[in-house]
Design a binder for these strands. Structure first.
Length: 430
RNA sequence: UCCCCGAUAGCUCAAUCGGCAGAGCGAGCGACUGUUAAUCGCUAGGUUGUUGGUUCGAUUCCAACUCGGGGAGCCA
């Protein structure tokens, strides 16, 4: 007798197996119970017929509440009438722990109620599928970088100062000194690239901005590759290869989950490098035609990003941004010093900016000027300037927002469902 | 910080012009041998977010507050 998972039932047709899980739903009709057992890998229907199981088990099942933990032994059968194609002829039922009045019903709920019950909401069919997609995305990203010889070298989460000097940071008491939760691992990633050639950091990132949109979290996961001896074009190719391979792998490995999530995969199948590229100036022309109210010189707003992405059938790369609206470490374009060698990748279907990257300023004097111009505390950046004093090389990298990527691939409206326990401006419980 | 919207049973929502607080689901009890959010019958379930105002009378109109949702800005 072996304990099998629902996702492997096809290998056990005709055998008697033991399944361990929770009661997802029960439909009882007189002398027959239909128990839907979920175990995290899937849901299967268990049929219990009176007279074919011990009488006390049949009666116990008739009052069994949703999410009761149960162990079932039964015969695996193929049955066209069952969802998923397989069914269990129940022979024995053990109630591990009965549950009553489970708060989340099999009906629609509002976001407030569901987020208050996030610890239980995670058991729902779509949320399970979403977490499995998220896990597959992370695995695909890590294996992509591993295949290409990158070393995972994570950045610290406590930092002594702002990385980019713009966003509002979360301050914490650090032994009578103020520390901040990191908003980016990039500067540390640059140190790693000078040590190891090509690295990526992957960890939680914190922004204390009071953003209230479906694309924002105060705590999110960011993956940031950084490559020595690389220019803007190198990391643009890296970004489009990464997205293409990750999307293909998730399509191949998580098709059932994407179906549960009702994701139309036809647009994902078109996600293949190379991606269309437009400069900021070209994007501004498109926006003038579209009449979005875009003002030249500003950053792209969410409606601007959507208008541009609608012109193409795959992610779009926008390059050569005005230096004034970008971070101090981005390298100026030699052909036009008002622009920087930066690149944002905009996902289709209104999911917005999923990647922001650039070639980094590698000239010590120019970087010192930029730090002075931005009125940043130079002493805090001395270690960073050392990277230019001792063997500076052209280098580049980007940051990928994991939850935005997962939201796009899974077709989820809001990024808060794409992380197990979302942290937003008005919500940090449970 | 700004703009818009919302709060009524455990959940999702309704309540006409300001006039007795309603339904479905869930829960409890009962019926049913193929249900797919099963169906059918019965029962219980309410300080209408809080405070104040207008009124003979407020779930309904007004104000403030609290909590939440969507968006802007900022960003991934």
């Amino acid at each position: 007798m072996q304990h099998v998972y629902v996702e492997n039932l096809r290998d056990h047709v005709g055998s008697v197996v033991t399944l361990k899980g929770w009661l997802y739903n029960r439909r009882s009709k007189g002398k027959i119970h239909f128990l839907q057992l979920r175990d995290g890998t899937g849901i299967v229907q268990v049929v219990m017929v009176a007279g074919q199981v011990p009488q006390e088990q049949f009666e116990a099942a008739s009052s069994l509440g949703q999410e009761s933990s149960i162990i079932v032994r039964g015969l695996v059968k193929e049955d066209a009438r069952a969802q998923g194609g397989y069914e269990i002829d129940g022979q024995d039922l053990v109630i591990v722990s009965p549950a009553h009045d489970y708060p989340i019903q099999k009906k629609e709920h509002g976001p407030d109620f569901l987020l208050d019950h996030r610890h239980l909401w995670l058991r729902s069919r779509k949320q399970v599928a979403l977490m499995r997609v998220r896990s597959a995305v992370i695995f695909a990203l890590r294996s992509f970088f591993d295949r290409r010889g990158f070393v995972n070298m994570d950045a610290p989460i406590f930092t002594p100062n702002a990385c980019e000097g713009t966003s509002t940071l979360f301050a914490v008491d650090y032994f009578e000194e103020t520390a901040y939760l990191t908003q980016s691992g990039q500067l540390y990633g640059e140190a790693g690239a000078m040590a190891l050639g090509k690295i990526y950091t992957f960890g939680p990132t914190f922004r204390a901005e009071k953003s209230k949109t479906r694309r924002h979290l105060t705590e999110f996961w960011m993956l940031e590759p950084e490559v020595a001896y690389a220019d803007l074009n190198d990391i643009m190719r890296l970004a489009e290869d990464m997205l293409s391979e990750v999307v293909a792998e998730v399509l191949a490995r998580r098709a059932p989950e994407l179906e549960i999530l009702e994701r139309d995969t036809s647009s994902l199948k078109r996600v293949q490098a190379p991606f269309p590229r437009v400069t900021y100036d070209e994007a501004a022309k498109i926006l003038a035609e579209e009449g979005t109210g875009f003002v030249y010189g500003n950053d792209l707003g969410a409606p601007d990003e959507t208008a541009i992405s609608k012109r193409f059938d795959r992610p779009v790369m926008v390059t050569h941004w005005p230096a004034d609206i970008k971070a101090f470490y981005m390298k100026r374009d030699p052909a036009d010093p008002t622009k920087v060698l930066g690149c944002d990748v905009i996902a289709p279907d209104g999911y917005g900016e999923i990647i922001g990257g650039s070639q980094r300023e590698d000239d010590l004097a120019l970087l010192e000027q930029r730090i002075a111009h931005e009125k940043l505390p130079k002493e805090a950046f001395e270690w960073y300037l050392d990277l230019r004093r001792y063997g500076s090389v052209p280098h580049a990298g980007f940051g990928l927002g994991l939850e935005r990527l997962v939201a796009w691939i899974s077709g989820t409206e809001h990024v808060r469902e794409c992380i197990p326990f979302p942290r937003t401006i008005y919500r940090m419980r449970p």
